[in-house]
Design a protein around this nucleic acid. Structure first.
Lengths: 130, 130
DNA sequence: GTAGGTGCAAAATTTTTGCATCCAA
DNA sequence: TTGGATGCAAAAATTTTGCACCTAC
């Protein structure tokens, strides 16, 4: 079962800041913000709480499943599938025939030049290993 | 105009490795691989070349436009738009009514639990500043 | 009361950079 | 020939962690 957690004032403050911004900030930005409220909070605490909050599903981390950048030798439009078990990232050959960029351009004020679509789940190989 | 670049053996080897793998490796993985061919290549050269190759569009970097992790206070399904000019990441309220996960599950051997969709382009504010 | 959390600082990791030298065009 | 590229090492930047003390439950 999941480990017990406490809602400390530090954790509460970090969560509140994150819920009240749209800018998807970095840990350091959050650290600066939260220091207005808790001046002697440490950056380590910010990182620890972000990890705890992400594990419990209260927030999302926008990375690629690791702290490293990952590089893709195929610059063409294609979609990815990341296996939640083994961590591998597959290319998907599927083309849904979606013209998502055009949809954005016609339905919003944004001008989209490209998009990235990534699925998360279990790959065929890990399904067998079950 | 774009700066001139040379196709050194180091750059060629890195590009070849990246074109011949599907795993979207980290810089360190590439470094280990390329050392089989060029034993005294340095990690700095690998990073420099990955950046050059990405700038010229020959490869893609799978990150969020910075070297930091970014955190999202909204764990619900929603899409993102990243502005290529100011770097901001917006939430898109749009729902295309796509059931992409189901499509994956029925058309491939992958089991998708979730997906992430992110558009890149120019935000309304930066369009005005033109 | 106590297990989980914090602050601090040191360490680990990842990425960039200065510089003398080298080499692709 | 020469300006871009490399190797090396040091530095910068980001994230994690050990430890003694603190506090939410």
């Amino acid at each position: 079962m999941a480990k017990k957690t406490r809602m400390t004032k530090q954790r509460k403050a970090i969560l509140k800041i994150l819920k009240n911004t749209k800018i998807h900030p970095t840990a350091d930005w959050i650290y600066e913000k939260v220091r207005a409220e808790i001046p002697n909070i440490s950056l380590g605490t910010v990182y620890r709480n972000l990890n705890v909050l992400a594990e419990s599903g209260k927030i999302k981390v926008l990375d690629y499943g690791s702290n490293h950048s990952r590089y893709d030798g195929n610059p063409e439009q294609h979609y990815h599938f990341r296996c939640e078990k083994c961590g591998r990232v597959y290319d998907l050959e599927l083309d849904f025939g979606l013209n998502l960029n055009k949809k954005i351009n016609s339905e919003t004020g944004f001008i989209a030049n490209s998009h990235r679509l990534e699925f998360h789940g279990i790959c065929p190989e890990c399904q067998q290993k079950n």
